[in-house]
Structure formats: structure tokens, C-alpha cells
Design a protein around this nucleic acid. Structure first.
Lengths: 343, 343
DNA sequence: ATGAAAGCGCTAACAT
DNA sequence: ATGTTAGCGCTTTCAT
């Protein structure tokens, strides 16, 4: 049988109120009783029941983390960042995979509300345009990750400067001497995809390229798409000497085909990815990429939530994190005047 | 203000007991009142407070998942498998990263007990030899993953047939014609590492190799170690024409050095990894490896827990999952009689 | 400095 | 078929 606060109170010859105060470190308890009670708690392996506590305090010290799929290499870092920050504050994380499916999102948010989580970190599907009806009635704060939509409950946002990141990546390709840079994009439905696209175009424009120098191929954030995209380029005799890829997976798929075709990276074709996932530095040649601060995103998101929970500040907050260009082998070609262009 | 069961009862002109029965789908309620009450619940966006429910039922429909680090490519699959199974049964998962640190493990288990999770899926640190004192007092069932230790609370185990997997991998190398196979192991402190080592040795023995043909290098499950291990072999003029690696990361690190040295894979040296993580098929050449059913492990672990929770069966269970050999390019050398051996 | 008592929102006998 | 009532284990005024 589990030992309760009542048992401790009886054993110590005090009231449950006193025990409660000791558990919660209130200072209106004499050192004598405090010591005595603490000893008894220890002896009996007493563990407070936080479910009961939550019922009265209306705080569960639990937050929900809603992401598309932890298997996507983007998310483990983020989840870990969130967990670390949460843990620092004594919070736990319930994690939910939605596969970007709207009904799953709704269902999970329902569950989280029922469980009275204190807040939700939410990566919305690209398809989501509206909020949740069930959120109307609750005041659970939501921090939006990566996406930039607005609905009841959203108290803050953490995003990444995708525009700047893309701009820098393309600028780097240009500075090294590549002349014909294709953007192999993932989905252009979501804000990050669009921003990267804008960054790509702006970088071209700012460096003397014409509007029709921009070649944009839209697909999915998967290595298979990178592979197919390059195959398409080759089969249709499109000229290019560099690929700016929507993410690292796409870049790796592209590299795979190029290698199969005997095309040399970085000498014939330069490649830049996006994200700096784990394997970016493991592939051959190592991939130049735009690092996204994934861990940081999760960490900051929970940090922002904690701020809201503690100071009850209601003002909407937004943090835009910077990316950084990680230059590796896949773009380290020797500068040359007349760049070679693949047929 | 949140609407409670009482509010619904008042609005519907019935007792809270009736409302409760309707929420829990008891069948001793007339269709008329059931309909009326349900309508009112909907109209008022009523969401039952499961914290209150948990307090009386002693069930939280939440389980804890304790792993070393979600960033290790091994775990996202596993976590997803666990989450999917849990979700099927209406359970949520609290996830905890311990970094294989014993104190963190204890702390998390404490938190999980306090939160009255219904069960725990636990990947113990290799260093753990004993159980938890705090578990003595609770009856929270624990399913052990991957590790094979015994302590109070452990109600089941999910492991992988590492021996068989290693055996098959090495056998494959032999059958293709490699003659001097080095085992680049991760930590040999844990059961999986040891089992793989045994499998390696047994495969050699079974195929006419002498005992001192076994060369075992122990390090960590990191790509850097694979890189260093091969460097060591080269610098010390150790002969080898194949590497059986403790996991895929080690294999990838090893590949990196071999490529830097201009050694051809698979013709000069064959490589087999373990795990079949995502990047195994993305590296060049694609990596032959022993696939571990990671998703399955998580899925089955939660399944086992559900069985215990529902049938209250107390008999200890154990499931040993099989691995499978995935043959890719890194071992596809043309068979030859006199194998080339690297100096 | 300590305790009595009410109540958080729900479920589960037990009556009716 | 529906209601009454007593908790679940804790926190929190408000007294003393």
C-alpha cells in the first residue's frame, strides 16, 4: 500500500497541513518539526502524489510537445533541447507524433488539454490554417515552432531566419565561382520553404544574375526527391553547376545520383544543403550546409513557455533564430574564371 | 472558467453520477438522458478532467519512456514505435533522456512514480547493476529494453538476438571471401556488445578460423571511434580485409578513413555495420548491415506493458526479436580464391 | 508555529 | 434508470 500524507502526519503526530507545508518548503514551520517529519518521510519512502496535488493547484508540471515525426532527423535535436529545458524547471514532456495529419493534431491537443498540461509546444502541419475549437475554452498557452500562423492560444513563436540562411548559402556558392545554381526545393506550401526560396532569388538578384537564371524544382524533403530532381535535370539537358537544396536529405539524394553519373563534387557541381543534420558531415564529400539551431529551437521554445507560465505575461513573443553557414568539402572548389557548366 | 461535471449535471438536471456513467459508457442509462446529456456536453465544450479521474481510478493512461538520448539514431524509431502502440490504446508517453547517467535515471524514475505513470519502458545504462529503492514501494511495472538485468519491478524484457545477428554478418563476410575480419566493437560492458562479440567469434570458429584469427578492438558507439580504430590498424600494420563493426556509426567512421587512404570498399576491404540506421543506405558505398527492428522493439515493449496492465498478469515475459542481414554494396566484392590482404 | 476543515473534479458502491 | 454519498491525496484559507 502506498504511504500518503495522512500516514506521515499520523506517524509524526502532526496535521496533514503541516506535512504539506514541509513538502512545499514553506517557512512557517519550526526546524524541529521539519526535521522530525522529513526523517519520517524518508524512513517510509514517502513520495507525494502529484496527481492529487495537480487537482488542487491546477498545475501538472507537464508540457506537450507536438511534432510531425520524431524519425525525421530534424526533430530529435529539437525534442532533446525541449526536454533539457523542461527538465531544468522540473517539468516533463509528453511527446506526440502527428505525421502532419490535421485530425491527429486535433486529437492530440484534446488529449493534452484533458491531461491539463501547462502548455504546448506545437509544430503545426503546413496544411493548418485555423486553430482548434477546443482551445477556445482553455487558457493553455501554445508556443508555435517553425510555423507562422495565428490562432487562439498562441502565445509565442520560435522561428528560424530561413531567408537569411538561404541567402547566405547561395551567396557562398556564387562567391566560390558557381554560375548556374538550381534550387532543389522541398514543399513550397510552408513558410520555411517559401522563405528559403525568396532568399535564393534575392541572392541571385543581388549578385548580377537575371531573373530567369533562377531554376526552382519543387518536391519533398526526402533524399529520393533529390535523386529524382537531378535525374530530371540531366535527362532534360538542363545546365547547372551547383545545387542549392531545400534540406540535407535532398542534397544527399542529389549527391548520390551525381556520383553514380561520375560527376565530381565539388569540381563539376557544388552542393549546399540545409539543416546540418547529423549525417551532413558523414557523407562523402562532406556537405556544406546551412545549420539550423534545432536544439536551440526546442530549448528556447520551452524557455519561452516557462516565462509565460511564471510571469503570466500575456504579450505575444517571437524569437527568430539565426542560421549559420557551415562550409565543408561539397563546395570547396578552386575558384576559376570560366566556370565549367554541365550540359 | 472551465466547465465541470457538476455544471453539466446541473444544466441537464441530473446527478453527476449519471453524467459520469455517460462519460464512461456505462449501459445502465436510458437513451433519452444519454442523448440529452451528451448534447449539453457538446454545447458547452465539456472536457473531462482526467487528473481528477486519475486520482480516484489510480490510472493515468500515461507511460514513461526512459532512454539514453533521443539524438542517438537508434532511438527515434524505437520511440515512434512505442508512441504508436501507446496511442492505439489511448495512452500518452512521457519521454526522458538519461545520457546513461545513473543519477538521472533515478531522478526520472522518481518523477515518473510521482506522476503515477501506469508503467515504464526502460533502457538501462550499461553501468546499472541494481534496481531502484523507490520501486520497492510501488507496483509500477517496468519493461526492460535491450538490457538484460533483473530487479524489483521488472515485469518483462524485449531484447534483440545480437548473437545471431553478429554471427550472420560475419558468416556473410566469410562467404563472400574475406579472410581477415576485424571486429571493431563498441563498449563491451553491455549485453548487446558482448553478444555481438560472441557471435563474431562463433562464426569464425564455425568456419575454420583459428582462435587467434579474432581481432577485437573495443571503443565507443561513435563514428569517430571507427575512424580511429582503422587508423590504429593501419599505423600498426595490422592485416585485415574486412571490418565487422559494432554499429553503423562505427562502420561509417571506418569507411571515412579507408576512403581517405584510398582503400577501395568493397574490393580491398569489406564492411558490415549493425542497426541499419537511416544513413546506412545513403553512404557511399551503401552499407551492408544487420538490421535491428527498432520500431518493433518500441512497439512490442508497449504492447507487452498493455498486456500486463490489462490482464494483470504477473508472469515475467521475454521477447527476443530477430535481426536481419541487409546486403548492400560495402560487401559485394567478387569472390576470389586468394583474397588480397592489406598490410 | 500548527491545525481544522473545505474542496479540487471525478468515480464507485450502494440505495432507491 | 438514476441519485446519494463517501472518498481519492493533496493544498489552502482561516483560526488558534
Amino acid at each position: 500500500m502506498k504511504v500518503t500524507i495522512k500516514d506521515i502526519a499520523n506517524l509524526a503526530g502532526v496535521s496533514t497541513a503541516t506535512v504539506s507545508k514541509i513538502i512545499n518548503n514553506k517557512d512557517d514551520i519550526s526546524e524541529v518539526t521539519r526535521g522530525k517529519v522529513k526523517k519520517i518521510m524518508k524512513e517510509n519512502n514517502y513520495v507525494p502524489n502529484v496527481v492529487a496535488r495537480s487537482l488542487v493547484t491546477k498545475k501538472t508540471n507537464t508540457i506537450g510537445l507536438v511534432i510531425p515525426d520524431i524519425r525525421n532527423p530534424f526533430f530529435p535535436e529539437l525534442a532533446r533541447g525541449a526536454e533539457d529545458r523542461a527538465n531544468e524547471e522540473g517539468y516533463n514532456i509528453i511527446f506526440c507524433n502527428t505525421d502532419d495529419v490535421l485530425v491527429k493534431e486535433e486529437k492530440y491537443v484534446d488529449m493534452l488539454i484533458e491531461k491539463m498540461v501547462d502548455g504546448i509546444i506545437f509544430t503545426a502541419s503546413a496544411k493548418r490554417t485555423t486553430g482548434f475549437t477546443n482551445l477556445q475554452n482553455t487558457s493553455i498557452p501554445i508556443i508555435l515552432l517553425d510555423r507562422d500562423i495565428e490562432f487562439a492560444g498562441v502565445k509565442g513563436k520560435i522561428t528560424v531566419n530561413n531567408f537569411q540562411g538561404a541567402y547566405n548559402g547561395v551567396k557562398h556558392l556564387i562567391s566560390v565561382g558557381y554560375k548556374k545554381i538550381v534550387f532543389v526545393s522541398g514543399s513550397l506550401l510552408s513558410k520555411p520553404g517559401l522563405d528559403r526560396c525568396e532568399g535564393y532569388k534575392k541572392a541571385l538578384n543581388d549578385h548580377g544574375f537575371a531573373n530567369d537564371d533562377a531554376i526552382i524544382l519543387e518536391g519533398e524533403y526526402k533524399s529520393e526527391w533529390g535523386y529524382q530532381a537531378v535525374k530530371y535535370l540531366m535527362q532534360n539537358n538542363k545546365k547547372f553547376d551547383a545545387l542549392f537544396c531545400g534540406d540535407d536529405l535532398i542534397a544527399i539524394g542529389a549527391m548520390k545520383l551525381l556520383k553514380e553519373e561520375g560527376i565530381k563534387i565539388p569540381n563539376d557541381v557544388g552542393i549546399v544543403g540545409f539543416d546540418d543534420i547529423y549525417l551532413a558531415s558523414l557523407v562523402d564529400p562532406e556537405l556544406t550546409t546551412i545549420r539550423q539551431p534545432n536544439y536551440e529551437m526546442g530549448y528556447q521554445a520551452v524557455g519561452m513557455l516557462m516565462g509565460i507560465l511564471k510571469n503570466k505575461m500575456t504579450k505575444n513573443q517571437e524569437i527568430v533564430l539565426d542560421t549559420s553557414l557551415i562550409i565543408r568539402k561539397s563546395t570547396s572548389k578552386i575558384k576559376s574564371k570560366g566556370a565549367k557548366t554541365l550540359s
